[in-house]
Design a protein around this nucleic acid. Structure first.
Length: 870
RNA sequence: GCCGCCGUGGUGGAAUGGUAGACACGUUGGACUUAAAAUCCAAUGAGGCUUAAACCUCGUACCGGUUCGAGUCCGGUCGGCGGUACCA
């Protein structure tokens, strides 16, 4: 006497799977084809799982379950990216050790994930903060260090006073910290750097072979920022000093009327003439103290000072002034540019402000108004000297000719430059991997591998040291040590690694998480790598995915892994937004005002009021409050605590069950797409599950419905089944889960009408449903007498022979517009004359034929007939 | 500014160049019920015509093109989203 009750079914099967280790990956039999399907592992935050997590996780779980039924050996693991700032900030506030909070959070996350019924092999769980794990993170760092890819440098770093730490460029957004949004300033500090730039070319080139979304590849290409051009050497007038400048426009050298150096360059000291020293010093100090935000704000208003020195333009032989300005960046190219104000907008603005000469060397624009930067049209002018003339050439030809000429003179060469910078790899924090480095008489020394792991010591105080150094600096008994090889006194490195470190290689650890001779078991690595499918949020398009590729390539170079790339196929799930919201604006008298009539800067004068969707109607292109003309805003927002539109997956499970949650997240729309949450949508798929239950179960007796019997299926039943198998199979293969679910709904809607339901057919349907809604599927499978678990039962196969219909429907068009539709028996469906004959007999079609001349007949077998009538 | 993606009913979304709107939500009407919930049935892009059935017009942001036929391909415009930016 009970209807569909997920709260009874779901825990039962979750316990069953756990107890029987149903999803334990047995990789001793490597003759089976393998499939490694991976989720981006979460940071176990204190707020718990968000509905965004189960989106990608459900997708991979469907694929994992599907592949198992397709007889693949499936690796589907989960772990924790557990180092990171929030736990440490919490510790600073409360004194609770990050290790404790992390453990609690992991417990919560694990429980939540298990309540959704994901088929992870929990025996392979990894945790980046476990010394057994970070031992190998440190080991990999040692390999980087030994290869000369890790070095220390005094670099102007992004220092965040509030967080008391240095941030990577990637962690700074608009001059503010990504975490917390605090201001960031630049400050020189000794830091560990990783030479990712040495791999820039390979990181760019190898993207071509990856089955990744083009947009993500483009983002990485953009980030790596390869540009081709030339390095040109300029003599300093009256000195032997030279300045190298990178340009992508060597063709415009005749138009270079001044040079600019980045204020940070040490060369500036040598070039500054005595009477300019004051100005230059002042400018450099200002530039240094400016935060990134200030620099960005001053984008349009360029500043700089003249050093008093001149360089010689190798093409014209003219002396051109050397300036310093912070619109030139020290970190890109050589930190010096040749300024061509006629053909570069930034140079043009600077030249206009400081009244420097602007010369046209490519025709086609009006350089008195702005720089002419189009390289696709226009010919070279004013570009000739005694032994070289570019005049009349196209830009691209002029480039080649200029580079050859410079090479001949020994004053330039073709060069490739990247935007990508070396990776700032140290943090002044406690909750990260310690570096396996000691300082012996001021020299860095790598610890021998036998000393790993270098464990984090216990500390009392999580505040950074006053010097800005890590809290570890305050633990003398840990910092002061001895060199294990010489016995000499030594000091430990107190910086720790950034959060990215642990996530750079975790996919390798899952392969054999307890392997003790290296980060990854080489035998198993050869079997499992690469990851066949990697699913996660697009926010990791450049950072995590670029760093992991870099480490992987280093590991490839030293023979630890056998593949050049870690992630063969990548899918980014789209963000789930909060429910659609309607917002009206109310004025001080309590009247609603049309949002259309309010300018953006006047909005603050009105009170925003959330309007329930039942109170809103569509009027023209706008939504208005029912019965009024007050236009409201209709928008979905990113889920956030402050907006109060966060959906808690636990509550969804409690009310509708895990299967409904899984189904809804997949039914919402295409995986990659950004889409708003809808509680009503959850109810929709919940209703579907209730209908499925009623198709199988007699709710009076709780037993299998009496209509489910062992009979021969009818032709119609076989047709529906096989169409469903085909659609669901193809859709899973192409990650179109929304339409796969709609196919399952169509099947169930049909089955509800059947008087007799053949067991064989109903069993196949349960199997098709099982990757999406595994709990109800297992329960129904048991009731159907299918046995223990359906997790490894063979996936149903479809056969086209069952899918032929008795009749085919043809749409009959006149001049491309459908005017009739006819049924043709299958035997005659491809008989053109027969079909055309039937079409012409249709009353409505005849009317059109009578009123014109038939000039052409288009016949598309089994689909359409188009008659062209004039 | 530059790079990339996207514009389809009241909503989420379906549509190998071949009957636009599958599937679901919502809404409306009905059945069951003392009533409600749940469930089931029917209608549901806009409009026209008709007692009705049928039929007709318009319709995938906008303008144009290719084609027997365009949501889909091509060119342009507008709007939205994401990334990125003194990168020389």
């Amino acid at each position: 006497m009970s209807e569909y009750t997920p709260s009874a079914i779901e825990p039962k099967w979750q316990k069953f799977w756990k107890k029987n280790k149903t999803f334990k990956t047995d990789d001793t039999d490597t003759s089976k084809p393998k499939f490694y399907v991976l989720d981006m592992f979460p940071y176990p935050s204190s707020s718990g799982l968000h509905v965004g997590h189960p989106e990608g996780y459900t997708a991979t779980d469907i694929i994992a379950r599907f592949k198992r039924m397709k007889n693949y050996n499936v690796l589907h693991p989960m772990g924790w990216d557990a180092f990171g700032l929030p736990a440490e900030q919490y510790a600073v506030k409360t004194g609770q050790h990050p290790k404790e909070t992390t453990e609690q959070n992991i417990k919560g996350f694990r429980k939540q994930l298990q309540a959704i019924g994901f088929s992870y092999d929990w025996d392979r769980e990894v945790n980046t903060t476990d010394p057994k794990y970070y031992k190998w993170t440190q080991w990999i760092f040692l390999q980087l260090y030994k290869k000369g890819l890790a070095y220390q440098a005094d670099v102007p770093v992004n220092w965040c006073p509030q967080l008391g730490t240095v941030l990577a460029n990637e962690e700074v957004i608009d001059g503010k910290s990504e975490v917390g949004g605090y201001p960031v300033v630049r400050r020189p500090m000794k830091q560990w750097m990783l030479k990712i730039t040495e791999y820039a070319d390979r990181l760019q080139e190898d993207l071509a072979d990856l089955d990744w979304p083009e947009s993500i590849k483009d983002m990485q290409r953009n980030w790596i920022g390869k540009s081709e051009g030339a390095d040109i050497t300029f003599q300093v007038a009256g000195s032997r000093q030279t300045i190298k400048a990178f340009t992508t426009r060597p063709d415009t050298l005749f138009g270079a009327t001044y040079m600019v150096l980045a204020p940070e360059l040490s060369l500036v000291d040598e070039l500054t003439v005595p009477e300019k020293r004051q100005d230059v010093k002042k400018y450099r100090e200002e530039a240094e103290s400016k935060s990134d935000l200030d620099r960005t704000d001053l984008n349009k208003n360029k500043t700089g000072v003249f050093t008093g020195s001149y360089a010689i333009n190798p093409a014209t032989g003219n002396q051109i002034p050397i300036w310093i300005a912070d619109y030139v960046l020290a970190g890109y190219g050589s930190g010096a540019i040749m300024a061509v104000p006629g053909h570069d907008q930034r140079d043009w603005e600077f030249a206009a402000k400081y009244e420097l000469p602007i010369i046209e060397v490519v025709e086609g624009g009006d350089i008195t108004k702005e720089a002419f930067t189009d390289t696709s049209k226009g010919k070279m002018v004013h570009s000739a000297n005694a032994d070289l003339s570019l005049n009349g050439l196209e830009v691209s030809d002029a480039k080649d000719k200029m580079i050859s000429w410079l090479e001949l003179k020994g004053q330039g060469k073709k060069t490739i430059t990247y935007k990508l910078r070396d990776w700032l790899f140290s943090r002044q924090r406690y909750w990260g991997e310690p570096f396996p480095i000691i300082h012996v008489s001021n020299e860095n020394k790598a610890l021998p591998e036998s000393e790993l792991p270098v464990k984090l010591p216990e500390v009392e105080n999580f505040q950074p040291a006053e010097t800005g150094e890590s809290p570890l600096y305050n633990v003398p008994e840990w910092v002061n040590t001895t060199d294990p090889e010489t016995g000499l006194p030594a000091r430990r490195e107190t910086n720790t690694m950034p959060q990215w470190a642990g996530s750079c290689w975790y996919y390798l650890r899952f392969i054999d998480p307890n392997y003790e001779k290296g980060p990854v078991n080489p035998e198993k690595e050869k079997y499992w790598m690469p990851v066949d499918l990697y699913v996660g949020g697009a926010e990791h398009a450049v950072l995590h995915l670029l760093y992991a590729r870099f480490w992987h390539k280093v590991l490839y170079d030293i023979g630890v892994v056998s593949t050049k790339e870690p992630f063969q196929r990548l899918i980014n799930q789209g963000m789930i937004l909060g429910e659609l919201e309607f917002t009206a604006l109310r004025n001080e008298y309590g009247h609603f005002v049309s949002t259309k009539s309010v300018k953006p800067d006047e909005r603050e004068q009105y009170e925003p009021v959330k309007i329930p969707d039942t109170e809103v109607e569509k009027k023209g292109d706008d939504f208005v409050i029912k019965g009024t003309d007050a236009v409201v805003d209709a928008r979905s927002f990113k889920m956030s605590k402050s907006r109060g539109n966060v959906i808690n997956p636990d509550l969804v499970i409690r009310q509708y069950g895990a299967d409904a949650l899984r189904l809804y997240e997949m039914f919402m729309g295409p995986l990659e797409q950004v889409k708003p949450w809808s509680m009503r949508g959850v109810e929709g798929v919940y209703r579907f599950l209730k209908r499925v239950w009623r198709v199988f179960i007699d709710e009076e007796t709780d037993h299998l419905d009496a209509d489910i019997i062992d009979v021969e299926p009818s032709r119609e039943q076989l047709k529906v089944l096989h169409e469903t198998i085909k659609k669901v199979t193809e859709d899973i293969n192409e990650n179109r889960f929304n339409t796969a679910i709609s196919a399952l709904m169509i099947f169930n809607n049909e089955a509800m009408k059947w008087e007799k339901k053949p067991v064989s057919i109903m069993k196949d349907f349960v199997l098709l449903l099982s990757p999406f809604a595994p709990h109800i599927a297992e329960e129904l499978w048991e009731k159907l007498g299918g046995g223990d678990t359906l997790a490894y039962v063979a996936w149903p196969a479809f056969d086209e022979k069952y899918m032929t219909a008795e009749f085919h429907t043809y749409a009959i068009q006149i001049n491309g517009k459908v005017r009739a539709s006819i049924q043709v028996s299958s035997e005659k469906a491809t008989d053109k004359d027969h079909v055309l004959g039937m079409a012409k007999q249709d009353d409505n079609i005849q009317r059109y034929l009578d009123n014109g001349n038939l000039v052409k007949e288009i016949f598309v077998p089994k689909r359409i007939v188009n008659l062209v009538v004039k």
